[in-house]
Simulated scan of single mutants.
Amino acid sequence: MPINFLGDIMNKLEMTDLIVSSKISKGLSWETIAKDLKVSPVWLTSACLGMNSATPKQAKAIADYLGLDDTVAEALVAFPTKIWDQAVPTDPLVYRLYEVVGVYGDTLKEVIQEKFGDGIMSAIDFSMEVDKIEDPKGDRVLLTLNGKFLPYKSW
Rank of each mutant, 00 (worst) to 15 (best):
G119Y: 03
E134T: 05
D125K: 03
M121P: 00
F116N: 12
S127L: 03
L108F: 15
V111R: 11
A123F: 15
I112A: 00
D118E: 15
L108V: 10
E114M: 01
V130F: 11
K109T: 05
E110S: 13
M121A: 01
I112S: 00
D131K: 15
F116M: 15
I133R: 09
S127R: 10
I124G: 07
K109F: 02
I120V: 15
E110C: 08
F126E: 08
V111F: 06
D135L: 10
M121D: 01
I120W: 04
D125A: 04
E110A: 15
K109A: 05
I124N: 12
V130K: 03
Q113I: 02
K132L: 14
K109I: 02
D118N: 13
K109V: 04
L108A: 12
D125V: 03
E134F: 02
K132F: 10
K109W: 02
L108K: 05
E110G: 07
K132N: 11
E129V: 06
G117S: 11
K115T: 07
I124S: 15
G119K: 01
D106N: 13
D106E: 14
T107A: 07
I124L: 15
K115D: 11
L108G: 09
P136Q: 11
F126Q: 09
E110Q: 13
V111P: 01
M121G: 00
F116L: 13
K115Q: 13
E134V: 05
V111K: 13
S127E: 10
S127W: 00
D131L: 14
E114F: 03
G117H: 10
E110L: 12
I124F: 15
S122T: 08
G119A: 07
D135V: 09
K109L: 03
S127Q: 09
M121R: 01
S127Y: 03
I112G: 00
D125E: 07
K115F: 07
P136M: 11
S122A: 13
E134I: 02
I112K: 00
F126H: 13
I133N: 07
G119R: 01
V130H: 06
M128K: 05
P136I: 09
K109C: 03
D125T: 03
A123H: 08
D118A: 13
E134G: 01
I120M: 12
D118R: 14
D135N: 15
M128R: 03
I133T: 08
D125I: 04
A123T: 14
D125S: 07
V111S: 09
I133D: 04
S127V: 05
I120S: 07
E114H: 02
K109R: 13
V111W: 06
I133G: 02
I120F: 14
M121Y: 00
M121T: 02
I133H: 05
D118V: 14
M128F: 04
Q113S: 08
D118G: 02
